[in-house]
Amino acid sequence: MSAGRLLAVAIALGSQLGCSVLVHPADVHVAWATPRWPDVTLAELAQGRTEYVDHCAGCHTLVRPEAQEPEHWPEHVSEMEDEQGVKLTADERQHIVRYLMVASAIPVVPKD
């Protein structure tokens, strides 16, 4: 395989990997979230993403937010606390649930 071909394959693979990243919260997410939770901020959603990665990858690979309906996420998080012994503070639970719900509703930030 020539170096150019190899580079093209590497770039194609790299962009595939790049697409599979968990969405970073953006303004569209805040717009979706504000009618539900008037106090929500972009920083809180970003915090929720970090806490999701830190608290929820200990037993299984992370479940992609869009794999569940937004409305089902609060239930899943409670189930993990009640049945699997996951320990979250009230703040962490709120950040994680809010992040998972917005990321489920908008898994990819639309390009304008």
Binding site: L17, G18, S20, Y52, A57, T61, R64
Partner: peptide, 8 residues
């Protein structure tokens, strides 16, 4: 970094 959340 995380295999689901990050590119690699």
């Amino acid at each position: 970094s995380d295999p689901v959340a990050d590119a690699i």
